[in-house]
Simulated scan of single mutants.
Amino acid sequence: MDEHIAEAVGRPDLIRLDDGLVCLRFETMKVVSALAAVRHLLETGVVRRGDTLLDSSSGIYAYALALACHRYGMRCHIVGSTTVDHVLRTQLAVLGAHLEQMGPSDDLKLDQKRRVERIQEILREHPDYHWMRQYHDDIHYLGYRAVAERVGRETGTDSLTVVGGVGSGASTGALARYLRERSPGVRLVGVQPFGSVTFSSEHVADPEIIIAGIGSSIPFANVTHTLYDTIHWVAFDAALAGSIDLLRRHAVFAGLSTGAGYLAARWERDRAPGGTVLFIAADTGHRYADSVFARHREAPRVEDLAPRTVTTVDDLALPWSRMDWNRSPAPATAAVR
């Protein structure tokens, strides 16, 4: 029996959708990393119960850290993106988390930069606060070991490909690292929005995509580029098609990054029959009800979509591009200084 709701929320479901296609579905994925990170900090004496934990978030991590703080008796301070919606703001308030939300902005890159600057101001004002550094501290890898062990037991690791949004780098990076301890041949496919610096697509604009979830306008230290075999860049319209098809065909109601991952996973599965492709569904589709699912009649058929295969990021183009990354190091624009 679970001792706290965070443990139940963080436990993923493994769903076989089709031959060779498996969904690793979370209600809220980052609860896994937040719980393990806070527990480790307490066990190692870095923080004590009652301390304040601080971080920036576009939404999912804010809820995850608030749950972890509730579970372990900590205070929680979040500098939130302008994209944090009313439902999440209300949940955070009732959970006792303090949210500072950035004002409206048409430029989500500027929103991310402002959040980072505000974190530094708060730390100068409150040096006793502990900055969780979800983008830069590999303590956030820890929670995925148990997930990787379960994936290994239930799907096997022979001819396994893992597909997921890159984001902060912790989820896909950790799963690949732990799975490769038992099977070095496990492939890792990262999904990115256009406009993200992480794999050098900042020169290609997609005005509709919300970059903060699976990409970044600033370098992230938790992204280990040498773990990734292939990268898919997916624009809003293509990700929307994936989300709609996933719900219509398999009844899985999940967010926009999941739609992008599902699209990439179908493509990878069809190119390598006989293997297993597992894609990550990081959250449910509720916050996308209006922006994505209400537009289901606009969605093209996924069968009519195919990525543009490129050999250099200079050739990236909307709505979908794919490149063999071949476990190369970080590009200069994504290297953390």
Rank of each mutant, 00 (worst) to 15 (best):
P184A: 04
S217L: 03
S58K: 03
R327A: 04
E202F: 13
L263Q: 06
I244C: 06
Q101W: 01
M102C: 09
G73H: 00
G213W: 10
A289W: 09
L92C: 03
D128Y: 02
I210Q: 10
G213C: 05
L227R: 11
G96S: 01
V94A: 12
G103L: 14
D55P: 04
R48Q: 12
P273R: 02
L35F: 08
L65I: 14
V223F: 00
R153Q: 12
G10K: 13
L42W: 10
G96R: 00
L67N: 08
I214E: 02
G143I: 01
R71F: 13
M29W: 03
L188I: 13
W131C: 08
D158N: 12
T309F: 09
A264I: 02
G275A: 04
I122D: 10
R301A: 14
F293W: 06
R295Q: 06
R287W: 01
P319D: 06
E298M: 07
E43W: 08
S168I: 00
N222Q: 00
V79R: 12
Q120S: 14
T309I: 14
D324Q: 12
R337D: 13
S56T: 14
A281K: 12
R124M: 08
G215N: 12
I122E: 07
R249G: 03
A34L: 07
C23I: 01
R39I: 03
G261T: 05
H77E: 11
P184R: 11
C76L: 09
T309R: 12
